[in-house]
């Protein structure tokens, strides 16, 4: 058993030693709101920053966050070219309500369904909301769980830095 643990620890350490920012996994299956199957590699933004937000229709803070960003989304896009990709983790109970929910709330985001929670697991999301910031190279440079009114401004400060080519 000791050997196993050592091997594993070495593998892990090696992984950390390579420490560079992890990229978004590419081959995870997602669904569009009109039923098409796509791969997570579809999440692209021409070298500009991307916000990935994991949410669910029943999650109140998620809805507050996405509604708050909606108010300023046009300004954000204009200034930094950022794109928000909203990943719904709703399961069969509420997945069919995602499209009505998105339209009803007038969200202009790119939305995908992750019913089997494959992407959620691959991104190590425990609770929603969980927000990631992705740089132009597709690397995860920042993440945060939970939302409080006003914290979208902290997020935008970081997006602005990224767009200006600064490190965060």
């Amino acid at each position: 058993m000791k050997k196993i643990i050592l091997t594993f620890a070495a593998t892990l350490l090696f992984g950390f030693a390579m420490a560079q920012n992890a990229k978004i996994p590419e081959n995870i299956t997602l669904k569009t709101l009109d039923g098409k199957t796509v791969e997570s590699s579809i999440i692209q933004n021409d070298g500009k920053p991307i916000i990935i937000s994991f949410w669910a229709t029943w999650c109140k803070p998620c809805n507050r966050e996405l509604n708050a960003i909606k108010e300023v989304y046009d300004e954000w896009r204009e200034e930094t070219g950022v794109k928000l990709v909203a990943i719904s983790i709703d399961d069969a109970r509420s997945a069919s309500r995602v499209k009505p929910h998105v339209d009803g709330n007038e969200w202009e985001y790119e939305v995908y369904l992750d019913q089997n929670q494959e992407f959620k697991r691959a991104m190590n999301v425990i609770n929603v909301p969980h927000t990631f910031l992705i740089n132009g190279k597709g690397e995860i440079v920042w993440q945060h769980t939970s939302y409080v009114d006003g914290s979208e401004e902290e997020l935008f400060e970081l997006v602005r830095k990224l767009a200006n080519g600064e490190e965060i």
Partner: peptide, 30 residues
């Protein structure tokens, strides 16, 4: 479990030998 660790190790070693920074370890703890 042994098998899994061995495979894990195998796949990371060639990367190391080649010096390609291709692999990532991520995770979560609760």
């Amino acid at each position: 479990f042994v098998l899994c660790v061995a495979i894990l190790a195998c796949f990371s070693t060639p990367t190391f030998a080649q010096g390609i920074l291709g692999g990532h370890v991520t995770g979560n703890i609760q």
